[in-house]
């Protein structure tokens, strides 16, 4: 066993590194840059029942230490995914995480019913209750503990697949959302999706993004994510997966100390596609230097 192997509940991963949904598509493109089997897993582009064209116009705005996107869940639909991409993801010899999005309770249930028959090829479902770029569902569900409980409980009835609930940071009390997911039978929570933001072009007085707002990601949001991982891991019994602004191995270690069992890499892949190779090597060196198994770090945070 490698020093990097971790467990998220019952799911064993060979590394804590998972490529975050929406920053790796289905793995086809990045597999041309490095061997994806070094990863703990890959979370698919957010999928919906029907194909979605996504938002129109400008979808990206840069900031000093990050970017906003307003892609709007462009995806080929779950049926196309099952037919064309799922076997490919399975062939990558890494954890297969399928990201599930929807606009309503019924959408999410229909998605589970489509994916559950393929459970042999899937390691976990990542339930996206947090996309800020669509008009209904997703984030509007993930900001209400009652709706989180209702949806996650109903999904729990329909599938034995591990349910990882990806939550939005755009709430007053993230612990309440995470506890709602846990009480409904979630296997893990993923913290965090993007922060809702806006960038204005001062020459035109208009937002850069044609959707006006977008999801903020990148190193700028890492302290927010680390804080939320720390807060939630103090009160939860289920594992936490950290996500937000990871650029290097130190960021991974920081998330694990805060309480994360695994860590997702998102925006960093858009700038340095092969960055997980360096991060993996650096983590191995860190474990070697400190004579530890990486998983020992999880939740070792010493608060003042």
């Amino acid at each position: 066993m490698s020093r990097l192997s971790v467990k998220v509940g019952n799911v064993s991963l060979k590394s804590p590194l998972i490529l975050a949904s929406g920053t790796c598509n289905f793995g086809h493109e990045l597999s041309g840059y490095y061997d994806l089997s070094i990863l703990g897993g890959l979370s698919s582009k957010g999928l919906t029942i029907k194909p979605r064209a996504g938002n129109e116009g400008v979808r990206v705005a840069e900031t000093a230490a990050g970017m906003l996107n307003s892609v709007g869940l462009q995806n080929p639909g779950v049926d196309y995914f099952i037919e064309h991409d799922l076997d490919y993801m399975r062939s990558l010899n890494t954890g297969v995480i399928v990201n599930v999005a929807g606009h309503s309770y019924d959408d999410y249930m229909a998605m589970i019913d489509k994916l559950d028959p393929h459970k042999d090829k899937i390691d976990a479902l990542e339930i996206n209750l947090s996309c800020p770029n669509v008009k209904a569902g997703c984030m509007s569900i993930g900001t209400d503990p009652a709706q989180i409980r209702e949806i996650v409980s109903a999904m729990r009835q329909r599938t034995g697949l591990p349910l990882w609930i990806k939550l939005t940071p755009n709430v007053t009390d993230i612990k309440a959302m995470a506890l709602a997911a846990q009480s409904a039978g979630a296997d893990a929570v993923v913290l965090i999706n993007t922060l809702l933001g806006m960038v204005i072009d001062i020459r035109t007085g208009r937002p850069v993004l044609h959707n006006n707002t977008g999801g903020y990601s990148g190193p700028a949001i890492k302290p927010v994510a680390v804080r939320m991982v720390a807060e939630c891991s103090q009160v939860l019994d289920i594992p936490v997966i950290g996500c937000g602004g990871v650029m290097n191995y130190k960021d991974v270690i920081e998330f694990m100390i805060a309480g994360a069992s695994a860590v997702e890499i998102g925006t960093a892949s858009l700038i340095h596609p092969a960055c997980p190779v360096d991060i993996t090597n650096d983590l191995e060196q860190y474990c070697e230097d400190n004579q530890i198994e990486l998983s020992e770090l999880t939740g070792t945070l010493k608060l003042w």
């Binding site: 920053t23 790796c24 493109e29 979808r59 990206v60 970017m67 892609v71 462009q74 596609p273």
Partner: peptide, 11 residues
């Protein structure tokens, strides 16, 4: 307007 340039972010 582009971000990754390699087809993974869909912006």
């Amino acid at each position: 307007r582009m971000a990754c340039g390699i087809g993974i972010c869909l912006v």
